[in-house]
Computed example of a mutant assay.
Amino acid sequence: MSQDLQTFLTLAQAIDAVAADFGQYDPQPELFRKISTLILGSDFKISILNGSERAWIRRNNDQPFELVNDTALGFYLIHVLETIKIDSASMAQICTQVFETPAIPGELEGEHGVWIENQMNDFVCNRCGNCCRNLENACVREDLQLWESLGRIDILSWVKKKQLDNGQVQYRAWIDPQTGQPADSCPFLGQHPDTDLFYCTIHAIKPLVCREYPYTKKHAKKTGCRK
């Protein structure tokens, strides 16, 4: 496949991407259990408890298995990925499962990693508006700089800055300027009269997270896209 239709991730970038996937959605028990075998091997097992499948992990060979819930299992898998030395072939198998798209081991400019198939080259928005009603409430400094340069006080009033303990600044959108609470829907989502078609009223200057949406078909599905 042409590299134009693939995205290359180093092993570290691939692990970061998997962690981002886990953090972005609700726990994904079926996925977690599939890749637990790839990551943990014999230190992972499934049993039936009270009529339901339950996951067990063993942190060290000299320790007994312990029961974990789905959220804890997701965190533990990322912890293990960040502490072990994983090869490109195994990482490609994990990425295939996590991102629901083919991934193969490879390298770029001498760096080992995985090539992940780009699913979105033929994506066409059908203007259902669901993505705008399943908000990620994120924007970046570059978004604010653009809106500030344009004097878009109407947009800036919906953005909240938060100083983090590490000294960095987090930007959250869309926060209702009247209540201080996250909006249920993007305040800049418009609807064509008498239709089910929606549009962005700030399309030319919308946040980066909106311009890049959707990252994958899985991301589209998880956020209600009708594509």
Rank of each mutant, 00 (worst) to 15 (best):
D87M: 00
I57N: 00
F65V: 01
Q119H: 05
A89K: 12
S88V: 06
P27R: 05
L108I: 09
D87G: 09
C210H: 00
K221H: 13
V124Y: 10
V114F: 03
K221V: 01
L135M: 15
T37A: 12
H112E: 15
Q145C: 07
D165E: 15
S52T: 09
C128K: 10
L164K: 13
C132R: 01
R59E: 13
I202S: 02
W174E: 01
G224W: 11
V18M: 06
A55Y: 04
Q6W: 14
P64Q: 01
T216H: 03
A55W: 05
P207Q: 04
Q168S: 13
L208F: 11
A204R: 13
P193V: 04
H79N: 13
L144N: 07
T7R: 15
D196L: 10
N60K: 15
G23W: 07
R211P: 00
R33P: 01
S157I: 05
F198D: 00
A204W: 06
D196S: 12
V124K: 14
T101L: 08
D62M: 10
K227F: 14
P187G: 05
C95T: 02
R59W: 02
R127V: 07
I202D: 04
M1D: 12
N137L: 15
L135K: 08
K217Q: 14
Q178N: 14
I48K: 09
F198L: 04
D26H: 11
Q13T: 00
S157Q: 15
S2P: 15
G106E: 08
D122G: 08
S185F: 09
S88H: 01
R152F: 04
Y213M: 07
I86T: 11
V68C: 03
L9G: 05
N118R: 12
K45F: 02
N130K: 11
I116A: 03
L11P: 00
E109R: 11
L40N: 06
P193I: 02
Y199D: 08
K160P: 05
K85Q: 15
T179N: 05
C128S: 09
I78K: 04
A220L: 11
T223E: 10
K222S: 13
Q168V: 10
I35G: 06
C139H: 00
L49W: 09
T10P: 00
G151K: 03
P177Y: 10
V114I: 13
L40S: 04
T195D: 09
A55L: 07
C200M: 07
D143A: 03
P177R: 08
E30D: 13
I35N: 02
I57S: 00
Q93I: 01
A19T: 06
A173I: 15
K206D: 06
A183W: 08
N118M: 07
N126A: 03
E212I: 11
F75M: 11
H112R: 14
Q170N: 11
I104R: 10
T96L: 05
F123V: 01
P29F: 08
E212S: 14
R226K: 15
K227P: 04
D122S: 13
W174Y: 12
V98P: 03
A14Y: 02
N137H: 14
H219E: 12
R141P: 00
Y199P: 00
T71D: 12
S185H: 11
G113N: 01
Q181M: 12
S185M: 11
A12V: 15
